[in-house]
Design a protein around this nucleic acid. Structure first.
Lengths: 238, 238
DNA sequence: TATATTTGTGGCAATCTGACACAAATCCCT
DNA sequence: AGGGATTTGTGTCAGATTGCCACAAATATA
């Protein structure tokens, strides 16, 4: 292919569409949960597209805020899903039919999509999820027991979970899933849930505290059943 | 925005172009090098686009093979570059002018690009680099001393280097930069080069061998200056 | 007040790490 | 041929880290 041909035909030879999907994860009732949206009998991860005036990362920040109301959260691109026939043409056809929209094969949304997969860590109690402009149903689902998902969104959610599992021991990010003030037992239980295995309590506390990123508050947590544990928060300086 | 408007206008509101760039890295003369292509006075990483009939990953494999002749190598997506005004419109204008091509602002190639950044680890002696269809100049450059690069390709190459630095102690991938049979001193020097610091020799060898992924060959390396070191290769079973 | 449960912290053996030591192999020089 | 220098393989040992258990403090419940 010479250069002129490349210029003339490139657009149709290459250039898949680009989208992004976010596995927004939270911790509630001892379970790790992910925010899902319902649409025509299937569940999907919150997602969107990259606007002309924003970077891919700020598009992700925008989508996260649109869905949860949170302005600042831990957010990380962890994988790109780009299999060759990846599209949600079939699913969208149903939606269009039901909504009475004009639909045809050549529509951009029927083409193949490459999707940037992010995961976000949030404090569920701080979120205010909405169904968005199209008023979809939404809900927090245990990542270990996901409902019937659209396209490869089940795979993306599982991959996000695995990535978090890998990241958590290397980067210090888990506290993003807890309130600003939290106790060591809470952090301990969180790590056990994510890693799905027992972690020796004494060692865990010592290890966490030796990181030097936590600040112990003077007053212990009040609504605890037995001995009241200390509250910690992240040191400002970091 | 209602759903019909989304359908009608989505294509022009969103959807940046998608490209990929690969930092192909090799180890030669005690230096870590990256393969670069020259085009109109600037150097760039080998790159390309994702064809209709291939996944993003197979597009990367294809580009790697087109540039080096290698069918199998370590290849990994490590970042996505997606700043909002990211395009090589200006650079391309020059090229088109010189080549006598018709050029206009609305051409797809002038639009904004999101690029998937891969890095590859290769044995330089096994590669057979080419300038590709457009016969560009090419060469291996020390990553610590890069020439004037196109767009953000210098940043991508540096990021690839940093990523490799992080990956090398966690994943066992460094031997991809060496021939099939290599010695511990060679591996040692490679790690010192990548991490840019001294590593205690005795400890390094013990650590590497304790991984259990290397197989010692019966005969030592022949063309060594002093005491002949053992040769190792990766165990088949892994 | 006694008991059970939760939380904070200490101790110790086993393991891992970093730094140095030394022997074996081999080249170079006389 | 023999001594010295260099490179490579492996051993040792103190210090740090880890896994595991123990025990005391705090507190609700009976």
């Amino acid at each position: 292919m010479d250069m002129q041909e490349f210029l003339d035909k490139g657009e149709e030879l290459f250039l898949p569409n680009l989208s992004l999907d976010i596995a927004i994860m939270g911790f509630q009732d001892g379970e790790l949960k992910v925010l899902l949206l319902e649409f025509e009998g299937g569940w999907s991860l919150p997602g969107g597209y990259v606007g002309r005036d924003e970077s891919t990362d700020s598009a992700a920040v925008r989508v996260l805020e649109e869905r949860t109301g949170l302005k600042q959260s831990f957010l990380k691109l962890f994988q790109v899903f780009g299999k060759k026939d990846r599209s949600f043409s079939n699913e969208f056809k149903k939606i269009a039919a039901k909504a009475g929209l004009s639909w045809h094969e050549e529509l951009w949304i029927n083409k193949r999509f490459v999707s940037l997969a992010y995961y976000a860590l949030v404090d569920i109690d701080k979120t205010n999820p909405t169904g968005g402009e199209w008023q979809q149903a939404f809900g927090w689902h245990n990542v270990k027991d996901l409902p019937k998902m659209w396209m490869d969104h089940g795979e993306i959610a599982s991959a996000a979970m695995e990535q978090l599992r890998r990241d958590i021991t290397l980067e210090h990010i888990s506290f993003n899933l807890l309130p600003e003030e939290f106790t060591m037992p809470e952090l301990h239980q969180l790590h056990e849930t994510i890693l799905d295995k027992k972690l020796e309590r004494s060692r865990f506390q010592k290890k966490m505290l030796s990181l030097g990123i936590f600040e112990r508050l003077p007053k212990p947590k009040e609504d605890a059943p037995r001995r009241k544990p200390y509250l910690y928060k992240i040191k400002e300086s970091t």
